[in-house]
């Protein structure tokens, strides 16, 4: 903008009163819908003081919920990370028929209601489902047990890494990989030494968002969980139970852990966005 004259700056902006009005209205909207709820989580969590807060998040059922949430994320993030990298490699480095359809199908879980994401697994593995009788005969529990929770989470977080990497790797093209292969590098050497350094920030971005969703998913997990305290409750489900028992301070205390996770996610995300702009 350094070369722009005062005249052209004036033609691209509004008179000061209009400008201030727009800023105030935008901030009121954001304040009402973002800042107030965010502040309310922490205010309510600490309403009964630090001691009550610490008791609520150290209680055995809360710890069991934290553990299950960590397990769920520890399974679903890596499997979707591997899938995202593999899918992006196939889609970005090669031309084939039906590519656009494949990309649309990969995005599909984003457009499906979380409730339906849980329901489909109940239809497959539930007692009345396709595999239900067989599973029961072999004493394998998926629905109302941990495997169902993991499966539903894998479904809802399915596209995160892939949808970050596909456009990134398409934009980078395949010249560098082709050069490496021509110079005698193996496929895996090329991937580790050439591709990974190029996509690491995009990869981290996808993983961060995938993890946030995996730890925070409610609807899909709620359908398959069975809500057994201390056994099949993730953090969001534990929050729901406490809230429905009118134990508001404890509910918000546990919820504040998830709100902190959201804030950390936003910070890392902003940092990665900044790094991606710097490197590009």
């Amino acid at each position: 903008m350094s070369g722009t004259s005062a005249k052209s700056v004036r033609t691209r902006t509004e008179p000061a009163p209009v400008r201030w009005l727009l800023i105030i209205v935008a901030f009121l909207f954001l304040g009402l819908f973002l800042f107030v709820p965010l502040a309310a989580v922490f205010a309510q969590a600490l309403e009964k003081g630090w001691d009550a807060y610490l008791v609520a998040i150290r209680e055995p059922d809360a710890l069991a919920a934290v553990k299950l949430t960590l397990i769920t994320a520890a399974v679903s993030v890596p499997v979707n990370l591997v899938f995202g990298v593999v899918a992006a490699w196939a889609i970005a480095k090669f031309e084939f028929r039906g590519k656009q359809l494949l990309i649309t199908l990969i995005d599909l879980p984003f457009s499906v209601s979380p409730v339906i994401s849980g329901l489909i697994y109940v239809l497959l593995f539930g007692l009345q489902g396709w595999l239900g009788p067989w599973l029961q005969a072999h004493d394998i529990k998926i629905i109302f047990a941990v495997p169902g929770i993991v499966l539903a989470t894998v479904f809802v977080t399915f596209p995160f890494v892939a949808r970050e990497l596909i456009p990134l790797m398409e934009a980078q093209g395949k010249d560098e990989e082709e050069a490496a292969i021509t110079l005698g590098a193996s496929g895996f050497q090329t991937f580790w030494r050439v591709t990974i350094p190029n996509i690491k920030w995009g990869l981290l971005y996808g993983v961060i968002l995938c993890n946030a969703r995996a730890m925070g998913e409610f609807g899909a997990v709620s359908v398959v969980s069975g809500h057994i305290r201390g056994a099949t409750n993730t953090i969001p489900l534990h929050v729901e139970i406490l809230y429905n028992e009118y134990n508001y301070a404890a509910a918000f205390a546990v919820a504040s852990l998830l709100a902190l996770l959201a804030l950390v996610t936003l910070v890392v995300k902003s940092f990665v966005e900044w790094r991606m702009r710097e490197t590009s």
Binding site: L38, A40, L209, P236, A255, L258, A262, K269
Partner: peptide, 18 residues
Amino acid sequence: DALVDLPFALPTAVAGIT
């Protein structure tokens, strides 16, 4: 600008009770 994405990052159950 970063906070605009809060509804993506905040778990829905937390948003709901809040």
